[in-house]
Design a protein around this nucleic acid. Structure first.
Lengths: 312, 312
DNA sequence: CACGATTACGGATATCGTAACAATA
DNA sequence: TATTGTTACGATATCCGTAATCGTG
């Protein structure tokens, strides 16, 4: 069964004569006539009466009409959907990133996607790098945004570095140390230190330990750790906690004046490069490229806003 | 777009390997491979990744799968419907007959059709011959059951004669004349005469007028005429009316003892042949043949029951 | 004869099966 | 080497357009 035949059949129902229908589908009259006959033979029913020189549909034709129109409509609709997928305007994308990117990436990205790609289905996993890596390897997500250095130890990944962020100590603007200009590590340690413990590059951990003499395991020195950034962020508002975090995670809080960056010496002279991590052997559909484009735009916008921060 | 390709595509999704799918659709492996490639080229999207020697569906394939299955299902369903129509088990039939056939034909026919042809849609017009003839000519009904002699004056009709019925005078079993064995026309005229006035063959009218000296127009001598037989039938139960009617219309009423046939002399020695009337140039679908078969069976059954009537 | 539909026929395209080939465990 | 999928190639089938034919007003 050929959908071309079905289109001919439908054209014949919609036109007063065979020749008019043939012209509509850009076919010669004999070819069109043969096409209809072939359909009749394939279906094994007479679709048109040819008693007089006028073709008139039989009850079979009227019954088959619904089927033919449905099939042709399905085909067109399906092709349209594929084109949408091809142009990235439709499809499904599964991605992930850490909760520390909530303000600067997750929220603006979702706003943008909901506005720009209304027919795209989004599956958003907010988690730390280790679970996201697992989701990536089991093909449950297409890519995730995380520490680009992960790719150094995972040969099956490819990374596109997008944003280099610094580290710093943060506290509430109401904190006793907020106005202090010369803070050393002993003063920091007098307050509850908190951290959002996702993946950390071993080199980062080592550097941090030596910088502040935090031996016998870095994490043991923190009072609160969580995989959820919103939780440790909350502690800054409700307590005297001091948070070690990336600058990108605190840009909005600093902008609104609720949180300040502490002037600690020696400063937390570390960098973390964020990037898009994906499997090397896996080709992603266009919709993923579209979403990654949006992520790049978000990072550029964040870059500008970080540069405008007064306390940088 | 060919549904054969779509079946190949579906088979490939349903089977672990290309060769298994090729076997399922009874095709050689190379031909099957080419069929899939052709579909990919027609749709202009990669449906399967061929990185390793294993074919794995792309997101495009998963999106197209729904379309392909819908199209194939529609085709199968549509073909099945045509086959049902061809065997007469499905379709639409529009027919008509007079209300005097209610007991002996309309009711048992409908019972039979509802039981035997559950997928057939029935459009039943109950009317006299003249309107039915009009419906027939405007193709609003496929055929009707009526006086076969109509075809003598209507050359565009063909008739299949099925049942020859007699005429007689009827009255309620409670009627004063019910027990009278020798009734003449003067005694009949003393009571209100009623008749269901559908089409009557001019020869019948003429004969009836001469038989009972009912000149200056036959119908003027009747107190009640109606195109609805149930109405005049009702008068027999509720009044002293006397009804001139065909025997077939009264079989059930006589069987149940509510109505009796009057012994009038001279008797109403007329016959009316009922038959199936249809247009000569119009070929009817199989479902009509099925329904006409049922009508023939009903008439046969009525023939037997009429023969068993005591007062015949 | 005019008009609409159907064959007649040569050429182009598609599709098939067998066979040969490439790639991977 | 066995398995799986892809080309190579010749044969067949299908489909198209031009031209001729048929059947009615």
């Amino acid at each position: 069964m050929n959908t071309r035949q079905l289109k001919h059949f439908i054209a014949l129902l919609d036109n007063p004569s065979l020749s008019a229908a043939a012209e509509e589908v850009h076919l010669s009259q004999p070819a069109f006539s043969r096409s209809i006959r072939a359909l009749e033979e394939q279906l094994n029913v007479p679709l048109f009466t040819r008693s007089d020189r006028r073709l008139r549909p039989t009850p079979y034709a009227l019954a088959w009409e619904a089927t033919a129109r449905r099939i042709v409509m399905n085909e067109n609709e399906g092709k349209r959907h594929l084109q949408m997928m091809q142009s990235g305007k439709s499809g499904r994308v599964a991605l992930g990133m850490g909760s520390s990117l909530m303000d600067e990436l997750i929220c603006p990205l979702l706003d943008k996607l909901l506005r720009d790609l209304p027919e795209v289905q989004i599956n958003f996993s907010v988690d730390t790098s280790a679970p996201l890596l697992n989701l990536l390897r089991t093909r449950q997500i297409d890519f995730f945004v995380g520490d680009a250095s992960i790719a150094r130890y995972q040969q099956d990944l490819v990374v596109e570095s997008l944003f280099t962020c610094g580290f710093a100590w943060y506290a509430s603007s109401q904190h006793p140390l907020a106005k202090t200009t010369d803070i050393d590590i002993a003063m920091i340690k007098a307050w509850p230190m908190v951290i959002a413990a996702g993946y950390f590059d071993p080199a980062v951990v080592e550097h941090m330990e030596s910088l502040y003499d935090l031996h016998s395991g870095l994490y043991q020195h923190f009072r609160v750790m969580s995989n959820d950034f919103q939780l440790v962020r909350h502690l800054l508002d409700s307590s005297d906690a001091i948070l070690a975090a990336t600058d990108i995670s605190m840009i909005r809080a600093v902008e609104t004046g609720k949180v300040v960056k502490l002037h600690v010496s020696p400063p937390l002279a570390l960098t973390l490069t964020l990037g898009i991590l994906r499997l090397a052997d896996c080709e992603l559909p266009p919709v993923c490229e579209r979403v990654m484009d949006s992520i790049r735009q978000c990072f550029k916008h964040t870059e500008i806003r970080r540069a405008q921060l007064p306390n940088q």
